[in-house]
Computed example of a mutant assay.
Amino acid sequence: MHIQNLKKELKKLIFAYRFMRIVQLPYGSFGAGGNLSDAAIDPKSLNQIVQFLSRTERGRIALAEKKSLGKIDLQQLHQLPSNTLGYIYADHLLKNGLTPPPVREHTSDTYRYLFNYVMETHDIWHVVTGSNTDKAGEIQVETFSLTQFYPARFWVVLLAKNFLKTAIEDMDMCSQHMEAFVRGWIMGQQAQPLFGIPWNTLWEKPLDEIRAQLNIRPYLGSELEAAIKWRGEEITAKSELVGVK
């Protein structure tokens, strides 16, 4: 029992050390994510993620086949009609100075496959959710991802890292970051499961059609902001009625 407790405490120390390392990374960076997720995802939580993703037939097939996204030709995608997923994705990468994910070798390891899948689809999810690449946009897409995968410690740690960075570096952006968190959470809860979608077969499809089929509402932001503004005005009005300054 004593040895087991020591192992648990050692794991906590390793986890804390790796967490503090990634706090130094930019909001959207997964940089040290590999090392962090090794500490953040244990066999039990991995099994919970797999069970959660297996609730759909598409998810079960994806986990069985473990296919990668494959090679992406940005210039070719950028020649597609401007309303298509392929064009908008390519435009997103080109405008932000980003490169397509590398072609990954097939792996039979479920954990490694899931980590590769997240890395490959991260910018696609940025596009389909209408999430910018600014700090708030990264928080929004990571929160959306948290709802789409089982609430794994990995995603919670990434969000915790971002909010700690907000507390240390960007308190003036706290409201925007919290609103982005709420938008991502609501969108993710409302959307159909995205895991396992063969995105490389949808490049030529209009993005609006894809969003409609998946029940993704990227303009929830304006509705949310209007609700927040209305709520704030209501609270102010009530405060004035009772003489609260």
Results as ranks from 00 to 15, higher is better:
108 S>H: 09
53 L>G: 00
190 Q>W: 07
231 R>T: 15
151 P>H: 08
20 M>R: 07
66 K>I: 03
156 V>C: 01
32 A>T: 05
127 V>T: 13
155 W>T: 00
105 E>T: 10
63 L>A: 09
11 K>W: 06
89 Y>Q: 04
165 K>F: 02
105 E>P: 00
169 E>P: 03
164 L>H: 08
191 A>H: 14
160 A>G: 06
10 L>T: 02
232 G>K: 08
151 P>Q: 08
61 I>V: 15
34 G>V: 06
81 P>T: 11
111 Y>L: 15
67 K>N: 15
75 Q>A: 04
141 V>Q: 04
236 T>H: 13
81 P>I: 06
15 F>V: 00
141 V>K: 02
150 Y>G: 00
29 S>G: 08
41 I>E: 10
121 T>C: 09
17 Y>K: 09
39 A>R: 05
78 H>V: 05
70 G>C: 05
21 R>C: 05
167 A>Y: 12
193 P>K: 02
158 L>F: 03
123 D>H: 11
5 N>F: 11
67 K>F: 01
96 N>D: 11
129 T>K: 12
224 L>G: 04
161 K>F: 01
108 S>Y: 05
172 D>M: 09
36 L>R: 00
49 I>R: 01
38 D>Q: 08
186 I>M: 15
146 L>T: 01
30 F>G: 12
2 H>I: 14
90 A>M: 02
154 F>K: 01
84 T>N: 13
214 L>F: 09
203 W>F: 12
63 L>N: 08
35 N>G: 15
5 N>G: 14
194 L>K: 07
24 Q>L: 15
93 L>T: 10
25 L>T: 11
29 S>L: 06
118 V>K: 05
183 R>S: 13
218 P>C: 09
137 G>F: 09
193 P>Q: 06
122 H>C: 01
45 S>R: 03
49 I>T: 11
200 N>K: 13
52 F>W: 01
28 G>S: 09
23 V>A: 03
37 S>H: 02
78 H>P: 02
165 K>I: 13
175 S>T: 10
41 I>S: 03
135 K>L: 11
169 E>Y: 15
176 Q>M: 07
136 A>T: 12
67 K>H: 08
191 A>N: 12
43 P>I: 04
166 T>K: 10
188 G>L: 06
239 S>T: 03
25 L>I: 02
181 F>W: 14
178 M>P: 00
69 L>I: 12
51 Q>D: 11
48 Q>H: 06
